[in-house]
Design a binder for these strands. Structure first.
Lengths: 262, 262
DNA sequence: CAGTGGTCTAGACCACTGG
DNA sequence: CAGTGGTCTAGACCACTGC
């Protein structure tokens, strides 16, 4: 293959118009990355499974192993793939012990999550309804589209600590019910993966300090003057499609939201 | 050089004892990375300056360009170096427009920071004192060691929004005064870099929701029942040495703390 | 032992910057 | 135009896993 010729895919193929972008050189390994991404999206390789070896992929795409390697490097850095020396490269999954809490940043002030024990999950509510304009915008739907809303409380050591409301697009999550959620032991994103083929790969959170309303007080068993962390999350699957809106209230008297700036 | 022989540095050199670690194979590029890191710490290459070209470094360390490249790749991923195609590789600095706010995650709900305009900074207080046990622990000092404490208010569009207390180890920041802080226009970490040779490279934050005390209310001009975001930060320089403890109170009625989970 | 990912090299060529 | 980082290749060898 001629080096540097964008022959596998051409991201410069735009609709044109005034002020169209420059020729947009795209390195080979980026194109390979795109092809691997496509296979991940299409479900050719499922979460937890091994993808073909670097040599196999190099042969398949007619490039050198080093080029495939660089593509996989980036996908591994984005946590879409996991490399295991001597074994292979695997599709990342939420059903792994050490990745379980990648998206939950609330930590106990003393000790770690191990010592704290597993969270107790209580589904309060789960129903289908029509998306409001606000929900629709967040999930890239249209107002009135079917959405699934759920509410739950997470408790640590018997103490209610997190109250979460979440909204999911109705179509991809057809068949999800309160029973299904309650019966499932383990993490929600694990269920989404195995039952609905929806893998969350990235999320954005907006955090504020708020005071709870009466209903929230009752569920968290706190007074009206207890300041709470409001955490609004939008989670995305492959190709940046929003797949979940989640609004959490965190009690932060014995826990804190941990963040690393780098 | 013989491949894979850890001849440049030997991280396995430990104090021994029972349960001492295995031989600890260390790849060449990691050793090169360590050497570059040393040059950064020692100030051989200063923030904003270019480091030698990849070819020069390869010759200097007697390895191939590819090995140097991989070392630089990691340092660039950690934001310690910045690559600029056609120009060179530069030591990262806080004195760059697009990196200005890497450590401040508070964003306006509407618009971006550009439209909001620059923050107004008011130094309330700045004094030297002896470290309490708590402060000493956070900064890896001993109780009673000299520390510098400062308090300031940041306002956006004339509205007080952030109240910050910060503690710095006395020794590295000898000569820092309230005047120096007030006169400096621009960012604090920029001042630390240029005036004291202390470059912050990483930080950890613990976030909680709290209610303010009377003094905090007065400075932020809010009522006692206004929930605020409490952000406790420890910032680290090279080699993970803590160099700053900062406690911030953020008003989140028109702003939010933004975080990306990936 | 074969198969996997991980490291290292040497060399060619490309894209970008600035004099 | 020379110098820099960026890409790509081909091949050798190392470290780790599991049969």
């Amino acid at each position: 293959m001629t080096p540097n010729s964008p022959s596998l895919a051409d991201p410069s193929a735009e609709s044109g118009g005034p002020g169209a972008a420059a020729p947009a050189f795209s390195p080979l390994y980026q194109q390979i990355k795109g092809l691997i991404l496509q296979s991940l999206q299409s479900g050719e390789w499922k979460p937890g499974e091994a993808i073909p070896s670097e040599m196999d992929l190099a042969a398949r795409y007619r490039v050198s192993q080093g080029t495939v390697r660089k593509a996989i490097d980036e996908l591994a850095a984005e946590h879409l793939l996991v490399r295991r020396q001597g074994k292979g490269t695997f599709v990342a999954t939420h059903a792994e012990q050490h990745v379980q809490y990648r998206f939950l940043r609330l930590m106990p002030d003393q000790g770690d999550r191990q010592s704290e024990g597993p969270a107790e999950r209580n589904i309060i509510d789960c129903k289908r309804l029509r998306a409001s304009a606000e929900i629709a915008r967040a999930l890239a739907l249209r107002s009135g589209d079917s959405v699934l809303q759920a509410r739950r409380v997470l408790s640590f050591a018997g103490r209610p600590t997190i109250l979460e409301d979440l909204w999911l697009p109705g179509l991809p999550f057809k068949g999800l019910t309160a029973e299904r959620l309650s019966q499932h032991h383990g993490h929600m994103y694990e269920l989404f993966e195995t039952e609905f083929g929806v893998r969350m790969v990235r999320a954005e959170e907006k955090i504020r300090a708020v005071l709870p309303d009466a209903a929230q007080c009752a569920l968290l068993k706190v007074g009206r003057n207890t300041p709470l962390l409001s955490v609004e999350r939008i989670a995305y699957t492959y190709n940046d499609a929003p797949m979940e809106l989640r609004r959490g209230l965190y009690l932060t008297d014995t826990h804190h939201y941990r963040n690393v700036l780098s």
